[in-house]
């Protein structure tokens, strides 16, 4: 009977070791820690999500409608603001929703989570402010744009302003490509206003005069942001040069025919 299998009752008789488990004396301490850390993680997740949503809202295709602005120094045209105003409302609501998580000692605790969203928002509102006034929004004006309880740091303001130079570059290039010239100012103090190119050059010069010091995060990002700003200004400088030189070849009043349905329709779309 060499091949005979073991009977089930034999296995049942095997002794099972049941070592007594000693309970850790530190479990109570760690339970307290768990509750604290869970609350901390929840706040951090809420803020991270709000910041990402703010960033997404700021980057919606509708935000590019502001490139269709035809003149500086005027309120945004209704056909554009009907797209952008709801976006700003959504953004303010998102920021408002995390105000309770950013109070007292926690004001700076989650700064690295909210900073991306705030910079995007500052970029958006300062760009709109420039379109309406052809003036760079000051720190206090920018802070007033945020819901009460959300603090604007000078780092977020400066980094947002850096990003805004990228928006100015895209606006200037788009405008020149569409209209064959730089945008004009139509506010009350018309005679005192320079061109968008001069403003960008002044912005670059002003940033180049700033010593970022040693305090994170501005010191860390300053050099790369400044490099990008320099590139933006040079693109517009080159664009203006090309417009002046090569623009001589273009018949007066000519426009690129971007509408596949014909020139007549294009004219209708362009007008307000």
């Amino acid at each position: 009977m060499a091949g005979m299998k073991r009977k089930p009752e034999d296995m049942a008789n095997e002794p099972a070791a049941t070592p007594e488990e000693t309970k850790s004396p530190f479990l109570h301490i760690f339970e307290t820690f768990r509750a604290e850390l869970d609350a901390h993680h929840d706040r951090r997740e809420n803020i991270t999500k709000a910041s990402r949503d703010v960033t997404a809202q700021s980057k919606l295709p509708g935000s590019h409608d502001e490139y269709r602005v035809r003149e500086l120094g005027k309120p945004i045209h209704p056909s554009i603001s009907k797209t952008t105003t709801p976006m700003y409302t959504t953004i303010r609501n998102l920021l408002q929703s995390v105000v309770p998580d950013l109070q007292s000692i926690n004001t700076y605790r989650y700064r690295d989570r909210i900073t991306g969203g705030i910079q995007e928002y500052i970029e958006a509102v300062s760009f709109q402010h420039y379109l309406e006034t052809q003036r760079i929004m000051s720190f206090h004006e920018a802070a007033a744009q945020l819901p009460e309880g959300i603090m604007l740091t000078y780092e977020d303001y400066a980094l947002g302003l850096f990003d805004m130079t990228g928006e100015l570059m895209r606006f200037a290039i788009t405008y020149m490509a569409t209209n064959g010239k730089l945008p004009t100012y139509s506010g009350d103090d018309k005679s005192s206003k320079s061109s968008i190119l001069t403003d960008m050059q002044d912005l670059r010069a002003a940033f180049e005069g700033v010593n970022p010091g040693k305090v994170y995060p501005l010191a860390k990002e300053f050099e790369s942001k400044l490099k990008t700003t320099r590139q933006s200004v040079e693109k517009v400088e080159n664009g203006v040069y090309q417009m002046i030189v090569r623009g001589k070849e273009r018949p007066k009043g000519w426009r690129p025919d971007t509408d596949t349905r014909g020139g007549g329709e294009s004219e209708a779309v362009e007008s307000y």
């Binding site: 003036r135 005192s192 206003k193 320079s194 001069t198 403003d199 002044d202 203006v240």
Partner: peptide
């Protein structure tokens, strides 16, 4: 492009 900034500077 060469116009000077006035009493209320853009930047």
């Amino acid at each position: 492009t060469n116009e000077a900034a006035g009493p209320s500077p853009n930047v």
